[in-house]
Computed example of a mutant assay.
Amino acid sequence: MVDAIRNAPWLTFFPDNYLWSFNAAMEMSLARAGGSDPGEVDRVIRALEGDTGDNMRWYAEWKAMGDQVLAIAGKAESEGRALSASAAYKRASNYYFAAERFYFPKDEESSATYRQVVECFRRATDLDPRVRVEHVDIAYEGSSLPAFFVPAPGAAEHPAPVVIFMNGFDGNKEMNWYLATEELLARGISVLALDSPGVGEAIRFRDIPLRHDYEVAASAALDWLESRSDVDSDRIGVMALSLGGYYAARSASMEHRLKACVSWGAIWDYHRIWRERIEAAFAKQLPVPGAHLVWSTGTTSTDEALGVLEGFRLDGVIQQMRCPFLLVHGEDDQQVPVADAHAMFEACGSEDKTIRVFSNEEGGAQHCHIDNLSIAVPFITDWLASKLGGSVSGRA
């Protein structure tokens, strides 16, 4: 049984279940960039009342909403209304992802649902003439990491800075579109959104598990970017959220071709975080079911998974970072204590480093600021533009 929510009055959807409330709030928040519609999210939440904690009911209701919105997208496309179809395909993609996140053990049905995540998002981007999205594969240790690349306006004529945008423990590259991709493009920064090891398609379809030495994935992405004529290879940064706060910081500490780093949420000692969760019989605040840990690490038990997490500590690593560093965290983050953010920031070896802790009073105090993305995302993307040479004003 997941702990009831402690001090977060904004999380009122399922007050006795943090996991469900956090994910419902996230679905609501993604409406700001077209990942959902508040009315559709509200209908799912209402349908789930009385079934809190039944993850297969969660799956069924979110999948049903995905199916409903997919039908809307297909009808709009058949009638030649490309932009309307694109918007609906994006929402369908995200609802299928919301459904599949809680589905364990993974099987053929969950895989089929996740393929809808990928296919709907690709169809959405193909139908939108306002942006050019390239769906690509990044060579990686005899396999490849799925990604999409979006060049900033004018990058073909004037090579642009780029942000390698990774998600976290349980996110995916498609979610990154709704979180900050459009804001980065508006500031003249191209985006490479990556399903890194243990994440998204990489774990589901290519059996690439989570690993602690994340600079291997970052180096692969850098090699790919440096081959492009529309990329300014001297202005490549990295950003990632949640557990990605570790991915980004580890990558920038070990791979000095990166010129800026944003940890969107602190991760100081991920082994300790999960040890405490396991010792509490998974009663602490979780972003996804506890089974995700064993599955994403490619192991067979929690003990074995904890062994993989031994390397997920930044002490002794982040001291080696040299590029500008931004760490953002929430004052009332119920998954990772704010004390970890201060420890991580103090240890960082960069001379140019900034920490921003969002408070309950202003909003953005929850994990990865899911309670107020509209205050946190502009702060993050403005900082990246100032360090990589983008445009805070939006003008070229």
Rank of each mutant, 00 (worst) to 15 (best):
E79V: 01
D128R: 03
E77Q: 10
A98Y: 10
N94G: 11
A85K: 00
V69F: 05
A99V: 05
A112S: 08
S93A: 14
M65A: 14
R130E: 12
I138R: 09
R115H: 08
A60W: 04
D126M: 05
A87Y: 06
Q68Y: 04
E77W: 00
Y96C: 09
A82V: 07
E79A: 04
Y114W: 09
S86F: 01
E79Q: 13
R132H: 03
A82T: 09
I72T: 15
D137M: 07
T113P: 01
A71F: 00
F121P: 12
C120E: 07
R132K: 13
R81I: 01
E100Q: 13
Y89C: 02
Q68H: 14
C120T: 10
C120M: 05
R123L: 06
S111M: 12
V118F: 06
A76W: 00
L127W: 02
R81T: 01
S84N: 13
A88K: 11
G66Y: 04
Y103A: 10
M65F: 02
D137P: 03
F97H: 12
R115N: 07
E134K: 12
D126G: 08
V131W: 01
Q116K: 14
V118H: 07
G74A: 12
A64D: 11
S110W: 01
Y95C: 06
A76H: 04
Y89Q: 05
V136M: 03
F104Y: 14
K106V: 05
L70H: 06
Y95F: 15
F97T: 09
S86E: 05
Q68G: 06
I72Q: 15
E119M: 06
K90R: 15
W62Y: 03
E61V: 03
A71L: 11
A99C: 07
T125R: 15
N94M: 14
Y95V: 05
E119G: 13
R123C: 09
K63D: 05
R81N: 15
E119W: 01
I138L: 13
K75T: 12
A139Q: 06
Q116G: 08
A76R: 08
L83M: 13
A112W: 03
A92M: 11
F102V: 01
V69R: 11
K106L: 05
R132W: 00
M65P: 09
F104R: 00
A71N: 11
E109V: 15
V69L: 06
A73Y: 00
G74H: 09
V69C: 10
E100W: 01
E100A: 14
R123T: 10
R91A: 06
S110I: 03
R91I: 05
F104H: 03
E77H: 02
E119H: 14
R115Q: 10
S111P: 03
A76P: 04
E134I: 10
A85E: 08
A99K: 08
E119T: 12
D67K: 02
A98L: 07
A64M: 11
R101M: 02
D107N: 11
Y59F: 10
I138W: 02
R132Q: 08
S84G: 15
L70A: 14
A60S: 09
N94F: 13
F121K: 14
G80R: 15
K90C: 10
E61I: 00
A73L: 01
A99I: 03
